[in-house]
Design a protein around this nucleic acid. Structure first.
Length: 724
DNA sequence: ACCTTCTTTCTTTTT
DNA sequence: GAAAGAAGGT
């Protein structure tokens, strides 16, 4: 077979990686060096040149998005569908393993996957039952600790308490939580990995199944693997299997959630006979941008070492703008974007990046003001929204009697007179007879031990669920979804919520019906309605959908630096480069955390293809107070000759960082004659108090909080304010 | 069950 | 300063 098309259009290093004949391969792939390309072509190479069956190849990623993209790119290259292939996320593949070998895992075939919300609620309940005070034992923290233990492969019995009171107490919660999960057939995200790892360890036949089947295993974003994922991989791969790990130690930005870069180092120890290939040619950015990134990351100590280079042009200088405050910064961002557009660019080629989500607000306001379309990443994803979770809870309880978390959620949304008291009785009975909540409630109703409002509500609820179970036999999933939303009272319940909220919620519920319709249509094989519904639940349990709030055809992208990883834009604006914001104040205590911040900065810089802007503000309103932070240390780590510094109008002749913010304020007061807190009167708006001001000369503006009409920005030259 | 008031927290996020 | 969560009252 002619396989040259797989190797064409690859550079030497990429080709070496794809055709490597050593047993194992470690690809250190710099930003923009064609990492996914190598992975995709390597799989195609194994299929076409080595004649392997696609089903003998496993490819692991971290996100569903990455998995889907990889799959479709492979299929495109091979011109054939990847049937029965194990291309997916760590969690998705673990889920598949556990479903297949649920008996070995001690689970029933239809076990429930717990999302972090459900998990938190359970941890809260347990803390309460253990009479732990919420203030000293925040459920969130206990949940985080439990997940950290699971990510490290530790069961409650494995935790070393060291006589430490904190550890002892949280481990008590962990133990209860473990027991509850076993009793109720619940599996959280960390558990998917931990449990499947244990199955591999304890059941030779399962291990044999995987080790015989998979000749080749490839892992993407290897620097992001945590302990349990690495252990899992060690068990899946037989001694004879080929293991390929692709990653970039310089782009490790998830240490705070358990990822261990060290796995990149230990790989060559654990997998002897490994070829290491470095991909250093960058196809994305100009020289200026790459040089800045290289210089910055050079300040980190523990690196495997890599220097990106490009054949691209030198490119334009990085523009550094020192803003007066965050609003000035936002206005500058808007100006730059407008300018990009006016010079023939498209908004969708641009991105505005920031360290924390709170920074997005000022930016949004500025973009809104000058009508620049934008798309913001952040906030809740579709299946994480309250109204959606409520509706899905019904679907889940219909198909799985044992799903207690979904029972609790659906019985109380909408409220139907079944409150904490009745629920307590149900929980008690369920525990006593070792049955599910729904069975326990049916039992209690039959016995007549629940009367009044609670009893009536419960009865209606149970009848509704039974009705739904019959309904799905002869109707489709989307019809059932519609029935649930309309007939359970959920739609009316959310519709009566105040203002915009009610409207968006009901719109989302409508959208959910559409989503189920689309899902039905995407199913090609012969399946019963019940099977379709069950596979729908499987898919959404591990994929919560899109993170975008507003859609727009041509829009500037606003997102955190973390979420920008893996993306690229012609124009990038990096905002808020101030000490304690970025690097973040909480990351400045330890050297390793600081290095992670620097890697984040490296990731952010390397998103830019053509033009990079960096901004920082002298003053910024954070948590309700003005903060004055010096420019980020990362700015000093970028060579001066790559930067072109421009300053705001307000202080054109003030030397960089020589004059503090307070002096600038004084200047304003002298020039305009208005101080903070000054009472003023406006012809139309009445009396108010000066909150803020900015700019100078004709563009000077003040922010006034008017007693009658609220807060407004006014241009001094036109406002005609009268001092009181 | 719902509404109001007080208190707390404020990094990043996938599954 | 705002949002979310808890506590307390009706």
């Amino acid at each position: 077979m002619d396989v040259s098309h797989i190797l064409d259009n690859l550079n030497d290093d990429q080709r070496n990686a794809v055709t490597s004949e050593k047993q194992h391969l470690l690809v250190l792939a710099g930003a923009g060096s064609g990492k996914t390309r190598v992975l995709v072509h390597k799989i195609a190479w194994e299929v076409e040149a080595l004649g392997r069956n696609p089903s003998s190849i496993m490819a692991v990623t971290f996100t569903n998005k990455a998995a889907n993209e990889m799959r479709s790119r492979i299929e495109e290259l091979l011109q054939s569908p990847m049937l029965d292939s194990w291309v997916g996320t760590f969690h998705g593949l673990s889920h598949k393993l556990l479903k297949r070998f649920h008996k070995e895992a001690g689970l029933s075939s239809g076990f429930t996957i717990l999302d972090s919300d459900d998990q938190l609620r359970i941890v809260k309940r347990i803390s309460k039952d253990l009479s732990l005070d919420e203030a000293t034992w925040p459920a969130r923290q206990s949940q985080w600790q439990i997940n950290t233990w699971k990510d490290d492969g530790l069961r409650s019995k494995d935790v070393d308490e060291k006589g430490d009171f904190y550890t002892e107490t949280v481990n008590k919660i962990y133990k209860e939580y473990e027991e509850l999960c076993i009793r109720d057939d619940l599996v959280d995200f960390g558990e998917l990995l931990l449990k499947s790892y244990e199955v591999l360890i304890n059941s030779p036949s399962v291990k044999d199944f995987f080790q015989t089947r998979f000749q080749s295993i490839l892992i993407d974003e290897f620097q992001d693997t945590n302990t349990i994922q690495y252990k899992w991989l060690r068990e899946i791969a037989s001694k004879k299997a080929n293991v390929t790990a692709v990653g970039d130690d310089d782009q490790s930005i998830y240490g705070w959630r358990g990822a261990k870069v060290e796995h990149v180092n230990s790989f060559t120890d654990d997998y002897k006979n490994t070829e290491i290939v470095r991909l250093e040619q960058n196809y994305r950015s100009t020289n200026v941008i790459l040089n800045a990134a290289n210089a910055l990351i050079d300040n980190n100590q523990d690196r495997l070492g890599k220097n990106l280079w490009t054949e691209k042009l030198e490119g334009e200088q990085i523009i550094l703008y020192q803003a007066y405050n965050e609003q000035d910064e936002a206005r500058f961002v808007a100006d730059v974007l407008k300018d990009w557009m006016n010079k023939g660019g498209a908004y969708e080629e641009t991105a505005v990046l920031y360290r924390s989500n709170a920074q997005s607000r000022a930016l949004e306001e500025a973009l809104l003001r000058v009508s620049i379309p934008y798309r913001i990443y952040g906030g809740l994803r579709f299946y994480e929204r309250l109204e959606i979770k409520n509706a899905i809870a019904y679907l889940k309880i219909i198909f799985n009697n044992k799903d207690n978390p979904s029972f609790e959620r659906s019985i109380s949304n909408p409220t139907r007179g079944v409150g904490e008291k009745t629920l307590g009785k149900i929980r008690q009975a369920a525990k006593k007879f070792n049955i599910s909540y729904i069975k326990a409630s049916a039992k209690l109703i039959d016995e007549g031990s629940i009367g009044g409002r609670g009893g009536a509500g419960l009865k209606d609820y149970l009848e509704f669920i039974i009705g739904c179970k019959q309904f799905i036999e002869d109707n489709t999933l989307s019809e059932l979804m519609e029935l649930i939303i309309k007939e359970s009272g959920l739609y009316a319940y959310h519709a009566k919520e105040a203002g915009e909220k009610g409207k968006t919620r009901t719109e989302n519920l409508e959208e959910l019906i559409t989503a189920t319709k689309n899902f039905e249509q995407s199913i090609k094989d012969e399946k019963t309605n019940v099977e379709i519904a069950e596979s729908y639940l499987d898919v959404i349990s591990l994929d919560s959908g899109d993170r975008q709030a507003s859609e727009h055809d041509d829009a500037a992208q606003l997102m955190t630096m973390h979420s920008a990883k893996g993306l690229e834009f012609k124009l990038v604006l990096l905002t808020g480069l101030e000490e304690s914001l970025f690097p973040h104040g909480r990351s400045m205590e330890s050297a390793s955390q600081l290095e992670e911040e620097r890697r984040l900065c490296y990731v952010a810089i390397t998103r830019a293809m053509e033009k990079l802007y960096i901004t920082h503000a002298e003053s910024r309103r954070l948590h309700g107070t003005d903060t004055f932070n010096p420019p980020s240390r990362f700015l000093r780590e970028i060579p001066k000759e790559l930067i072109d510094e421009i300053r705001p109008r307000a202080q054109t002749n003030i030397p960089y960082n020589r004059k503090g913010f307070n002096e600038t304020k004084m200047e304003f007061e002298e020039e305009i004659g208005i101080a903070l807190g000054q009472k003023v009167k406006h012809k139309k708006f009445g009396e108010g108090i000066v909150l803020n001001y900015e700019g100078s000369g004709d563009s000077a503006r003040v922010q006034v909080n008017f007693d009658e009409s609220g807060t407004k920005w006014l241009v001094m030259a036109y406002a005609n304010l009268e001092k009181l």
